[in-house]
Write a protein that binds this DNA or RNA. Structure first.
Lengths: 244, 244
DNA sequence: GCGACGTGTTTTGTATACAAGATACACGAG
DNA sequence: CTCGTGTATCTTGTATACAAAACACGTCGC
């Protein structure tokens, strides 16, 4: 269920079995970058990563190339690859595109989702709410993603799904980096309640507006969080040090 | 001006010089596929292509992988790569996504384009009209693309540009395959007049509606053309033969 | 003492070599 | 004669080897 966020649109019939090493690497690397294990600006030394993953340079380079097209990695000729920085400017750039896609997703999902899919999303939603009550942040995140993936599947458009997913990883990364405040978390849960209600009512216009709004609220929260992170020159680690 | 359709959004300052072989191959292959030299369904034998382009398999495979993410090529593990078919179903899938993106493009371009950019687009437009009058189909196509690229640049969003371009190649391919009728051509020219007028008036809502409409009209035309191509079992070449 | 140049090392870009899976054809059994 | 199986060949997936470019450091000149 987790991992594999890149292809929630796989048509069940065609069953394209994954090309082991290359694709597996793509996912591992993407997770490492999105979840912050590989830090923004970090230089990706091919030899080091090869040893780390136990593979040769050929499949590794394939994976790096692919992530470069997703915008998670920047490649400069003869200078190597590095993890791109999560800047506010980048988010301001990605968000409007994402909003346009999510509006379409909402409209289509409300119209095309099967009853079973809506029920499945409701189940995921309930589990997510339970995680919220218990403040299980990681489980909440993953269920959140599962819900958005399920809505994407319900929109019945593999191209839309693939395009959205490609952009989503850049946004997810910002979310991992900037801590979710308690206030924003409560707000997000309320937005999700409205989203589920619109889907159950098959209100296309409503869902098509709620999803971009949800995203807009997220951007506002991230703006604040990233602006706070942007000037850490005042007290990088001294904040903790002062306590002693 | 021609070629290089994949990166009209290159920020002038960053000047990422292209990684020669790999990227050059991507463009050559993309052109071959889009313009129909490599036919849909055609199997891509790596060794053959290597000899043809005079490169090794490593960069060729990189290029193939990238075009696979664009949807022009399908890869199946241990079975090789092949050019994807241009089906009506695929177009119906890509178009709504493209429309959502173009609406955003129109709104942003109307608001953010510089006076010089609008003037430049007007110039391209006039040259395109001249080509239409002379029925110079190829030159018309290329100026048409140049106009859409210029609008994309004016929208001031590299991510939007890159995403749009990635989908555009799939649509362009259909346009090359299905012949433009005289009636549709005249219609398209009229639509372009309206597009230019909206841009010059900086009418965001107008341009944001005209671009998707332009696309919708194109889809209707392609539907007819592809439906005609779809059942050639009745008389593959006999249609021409009957005339003799 | 400071700066520029040159050499050595590292790292990337490309080519080739090897291994595993898939296709095609031929041979044999029914 | 047809169908299944086994082998041979080819193609892909991965690893390694080679070449060129970039970086780092030391030396030489001013």
């Amino acid at each position: 269920m987790d991992g594999n966020h890149q292809s929630p649109h796989q048509p069940p019939g065609e069953a394209i079995e994954r090309r082991s090493l290359g694709d597996a690497l793509v996912e591992r690397l993407r997770t490492l970058i999105v979840e912050g294990a590989l830090k923004p600006g970090e230089k990706l030394n091919e030899r080091v990563l090869c040893e780390r993953f136990g593979v040769s340079r050929t499949p590794l380079r394939e994976a790096i190339s692919l992530l470069a097209t997703e915008g998670l990695i920047a490649m400069r000729p003869h200078k190597g690859a590095s993890v791109t920085a999560v800047t506010l400017a980048e988010l301001e750039e990605v968000f409007p595109v994402m909003q346009a896609l999510e509006r379409l997703t909402g409209e289509r999902a409300a119209a095309l989702a099967t009853a079973a899919e809506i029920e499945g999303i409701a189940t995921l939603h309930d589990r997510m709410i339970a995680c919220y009550r218990r403040r299980e942040r990681m489980a909440y995140f993953h269920l959140n993603e599962a819900i958005h993936d399920a809505i994407l599947v319900a929109a019945r458009n593999p191209t839309l799904a693939a395009t959205t997913q490609s952009l989503a990883s850049r946004i997810r990364r910002a979310r991992f980096q900037a801590n979710l405040t308690e206030a924003r978390w409560a707000e997000a849960v309320a937005e999700h309640e409205a989203i589920l209600a619109a889907l159950q009512a098959r209100d296309g216009a409503g869902l098509g507006a709620l999803l971009p709004d949800h995203l807009a609220a997220k951007l506002i929260a991230l703006r604040a969080a990233l602006a706070a992170d942007a000037q850490p020159e005042t007290a990088p680690a001294d904040v903790a040090g002062d306590g002693h």
